[in-house]
Write a protein that binds this DNA or RNA. Structure first.
Length: 815
RNA sequence: GGGCGAGUGGCGGAAUUGGUAUACGCGUUUGACUUAAAAUCAAAUGACCAAAAGUCUUGUGGGUUCAAGUCCCACCUCGCCCACCA
């Protein structure tokens, strides 16, 4: 009997799949389409790790399942190649990022194939290739032409180590996301001229569509928080003794009578204009101190600080004079950078008022002690004519009154800012702009795209805030497309989030040289049916949704959402629950596991079996041997069958065989569809166990066994595709198991002649009965009552009630 | 501080949504095969009890119900995300 040897069969099948192109999707096919993918990979010298094995197997199983079900299933592959790590590596190693990608990417090919992933290699893409980034640049051009790309000077997060600007989401706990070690510096703010995409214009649309998405709930929530919509009003306060006005944003205009002071952010433009001469020194000192503090220190500061400006503002609702303070707990970047402080009903204002002995006036009735605050809504008090109204009525009425006088407007604010898309680094798609002294920034004409990134010897940033491209003088100097005069190319490159915001559509038409993609194909294949990754990826998903919506607005595609289903899957940690890390040397290399002889099939099956997909799994060194054992059992069963004699199998045994297989088919079909891979695999194990019991007396080369084994092989194929194809051929087939093979279950094989009835007394299990499925209620209750054990318990008791649940249970309630 | 989620054997985890708690796997124990070991096959495996019978058991305490891992209330513990956003 041949032994199960994954080392022999896996490479063989990988080669056959390659040669026959079973995983090449026909995008023009008339079959129903299905597209499953995981977030694409950032190629680095380290190769794939166990986290990749997890992520990509999840989408691979889905793609295989659908392919077997008869869908035209497309499991694409590509590389998110631009970005800082490759550039930093290039600086260190002196090898150009172009060159290192040219060697790294092919090494990934081997690793992906060794994992048995069903990628369509004909349609492979990589974001650093001119044929790809031509269209990344084209998106910038379109954004610009539609008024959604603009340039602005902003205070930006700046990482000294990278010499580059960082987006908000790239700042984690005050440090650069790539330099967050204990010795790394905190990020700084620096004024830089930046290109932005006006994503805020889509904020409401992006928010509104979230609820309908079939995505992991926490990911949806993260998107909502990120957008951070809040409804309120802007209220105008006149500064006493001047004609200057300061506008505040508040979500609680109902508490306007409770405002006892105003607070401006230190960077607020009115600060210089309002402070009195007596307070100049104190204010200047405070602002200087605030500037020196990094954002982290500001946020970490437990105690609130501030300084009085000496100026007062007039409360528009009751003409009260309110002192104007400056404090860094008010942020310049949100709302108007100024607030009305209501210490009775806002915790931060309360803390500040207590520290600086400012008055606290309660305007919403509550039970809190006098100097405590409560943000609850309720009935108004101390609010003039609004006393007795509910918060929500007062809110509406106060805004209405002030609006009539031009002193307030309803206002919606978002936490989300416009998307900063320029990076002062070399390894990215050059921004297709030419800066002309006469004409200003001018778009590179479409026919001149792509602006090819020149190969350099030295990739270090220029040190003046510009990328290495500032030193590429041949590339830099160019004639202005408008006036023909001397001009320079933009030396910023595009944020790699742009590259990844549209790659799923390029997958659908990867070699198109005339357009970003063919609309007809994309309208057929979008949205992506299944998308997964091990991160919330809030920014990536939001940007992808934004760009997709933009595409629909400019008429190149129809569906405004890129991903129909999005699964945020768990990760793999070391057995002690800590993250795998190179420095600790506790990593588990998927390729090692395969090489040890367990094979990719056992590894894939273990990863999908260990826990539900959204749960973090702890690596268990006994896990892969366990799934390997299961696959060996299946292998051995097929071998025994092939060597068995032809003979008649009893009708009862046939029924048992059919029931075991059809139960498995049903459970696996439903569970894979619903992303419950762990219980799907359990169902296949149960079936194999059942067949093992049946084989002892009934194994024979007959149709019923042939079909049962085929069903198991087919159902296991999404998880363990190599052994499946091998056994499929051994069972006499000549075409791959990977396509159009998924079986249907038949309910008639699931029925049994008898059923198990649970018998309870006062809700406690006393016995179970095997009865004929056709048995009536009366017959079942009679049988239950006369059962020996039950009768003993009923002896001498008064029968109060008999509960009968159809085909399930009898419960006698006695006293 | 805010939000979300989770507590089930020695371990990872099941439980058709109120109806036999602990599927499946790991581990452990025993037996078969073997000179022996590994591998494989078979059996057992929540706790208490020598065993049968029985009792107890889904973080803790209450409640609803004929019946609760599942529903309700209170508490404890853990995890994740966001965090001075007015």
């Amino acid at each position: 009997m041949k032994r199960y040897n994954p080392k022999e069969i896996e490479p063989r099948w990988q080669q056959i799949w390659d040669e026959t192109g079973v995983y090449t999707a026909d995008l023009q096919s008339s079959k129903p389409k299905y597209m499953a993918m995981s977030m694409f990979n950032y190629p680095s010298g380290a190769g794939i790790h166990i986290g990749h094995a997890m992520n990509y197997t999840i989408s691979d199983v889905k793609a295989r399942f659908k392919r077997q079900q008869g869908y035209e299933s497309y499991h694409p592959v590509g590389w998110d190649a631009f970005g800082l790590p490759a550039e930093n590596y290039a600086i260190k190693a002196g090898v150009s990022p172009q060159q290192s990608m040219a060697t790294i990417i092919p090494s990934y090919h081997k690793q992906y194939k060794a994992m048995g992933w069903s990628n369509d290699w004909e349609k492979e893409i990589a974001t650093h290739l001119p044929e790809y980034y031509k269209w990344t640049q084209w998106i910038f051009v379109q954004m610009y032409k539609h008024g959604l790309a603009y340039q602005d000077s902003r205070m930006q997060w700046w990482c000294e180590k990278d010499n580059s600007v960082l987006a908000n989401e790239q700042v984690i706990d005050g440090k650069c996301w790539r330099h967050d070690g204990p010795d790394d510096p905190l990020v700084q703010k620096k004024e830089v001229k930046q290109w932005f995409f006006k994503i805020t214009e889509y904020a409401d649309e992006l928010l509104g569509a979230i609820d309908d998405l079939d995505w992991t709930e926490t990911v949806k929530l993260a998107q909502k928080n990120w957008i951070g919509k809040s409804k309120g009003a802007e209220v105008e306060f006149v500064i006493d003794g001047t004609d200057k006005k300061v506008t505040v944003f508040t979500t609680r205009p109902d508490t306007l009578y409770g405002a006892t002071f105003l607070v401006l952010a230190p960077e607020h433009e009115l600060v210089d204009g309002v402070r009195t001469d007596e307070q100049k020194q104190a204010v200047d000192a405070y602002i200087q101190a605030a500037q020196q503090k990094s954002e982290v220190e500001r946020q970490a500061a437990k105690e609130k600080t501030g300084v009085f400006t000496g100026a007062y503002a007039i409360n528009p609702i009751n003409d009260q004079k309110l002192p104007i303070w400056i404090a860094d707990y008010v942020l310049e970047g949100y709302g108007t950078g100024a607030i009305m402080a209501v210490p009775a009903h806002d915790e931060r204002d309360n803390e500040f008022a207590k520290k600086y002995k400012l008055p606290i006036i309660r305007v919403v009735q509550n039970d809190a002690p006098d100097d405590e605050c409560s943000h609850d809504e309720g009935t108004m008090m101390n609010s003039g004519e609004y006393d007795g109204q509910t918060s929500s009525d007062a809110r509406e009425n106060i805004v209405k009154t002030l609006a009539a006088q031009g002193k307030a407007t309803e206002k919606v604010n978002y936490k989300m800012r416009d998307w900063s898309v320029s990076r002062q680094r070399y390894w990215g798609a050059p921004i297709p702009i030419i800066n002309c002294e006469k004409c200003g920034p001018v778009l590179v004409p479409d026919e001149d795209l792509p602006v090819v990134l020149p190969e350099l010897d030295d990739f270090k940033p220029n040190g003046d805030g510009r990328s290495a491209l500032a030193r590429a003088s041949d590339w830099l100097k160019v004639a202005c497309p408008e006036c023909g005069g001397e001009a320079e190319r933009e030396t910023d490159t595009l944020d790699t989030y742009i590259c990844s915001s549209w790659y799923m559509f390029r997958y659908m038409d990867p070699h198109n040289q005339k357009a970003i993609f063919d609309s007809e194909i994309v309208n057929k294949w979008a949205p992506v049916d299944f998308y997964n990754g091990g991160d919330h990826a809030t920014a990536h998903l939001l940007y992808a949704r934004f760009v997709t919506r933009f595409f629909t607005k400019i008429g190149i595609m129809e569906n405004p959402e890129p991903f129909k289903q999005m699964l945020f899957n768990g990760k793999v940690t070391a057995g002690d629950g800590t993250m795998f890390s190179k420095s600790k040397g506790n990593g588990v290399d998927p390729l090692d596991i395969i090489a040890q002889g367990y094979g990719a099939d056992a590894l894939r099956t273990y990863l999908m079996f260990a826990a539900p997909l959204d749960t973090w799994i702890r690596w268990d060194s006994q896990g892969v041997p366990g799934t390997h054992r299961f696959l060996s059992r299946l292998w051995a069963l097929v071998q025994e069958y092939l060597e068995a004699e032809e003979r008649v199998v009893s009708e009862a045994a046939q029924k048992d065989i059919l029931r075991a297989t059809h139960q498995m088919i049903r459970k696996m079909t439903e569970d894979i569809e619903e992303n419950r891979y762990n219980t799907a695999i359990a169902a296949s194990m149960t079936a194999v166990n059942e067949l093992y019991k049946l084989k002892v007396e009934h194994l024979a080369r007959t149709t019923v066994w042939q079909e049962a084994l085929e069903a198991v092989v087919v159902c296991v194929a999404p998880f363990a595709p190599h052994i499946a194809d091998e056994l499929w051929f051994q069972l006499g087939h000549h075409t791959s198991v990977q396509k159009d093979t998924w079986p249907e279950w038949n309910d008639k094989y699931l029925t049994q002649d008898t059923m198990t009835i649970v018998v309870q007394i006062n809700g406690r299990l006393r016995t179970t009965l095997e009865v004929d499925t056709a048995a009536t209620e009366d017959a079942i209750v009679m049988a239950a009552k006369s059962d020996g054990k039950v009768a003993a318990h009923l002896e001498g008791k008064e029968m109060l009630k008999t509960i009968y649940v159809q085909k399930k249970l009898v419960n006698f309630v006695v006293k």
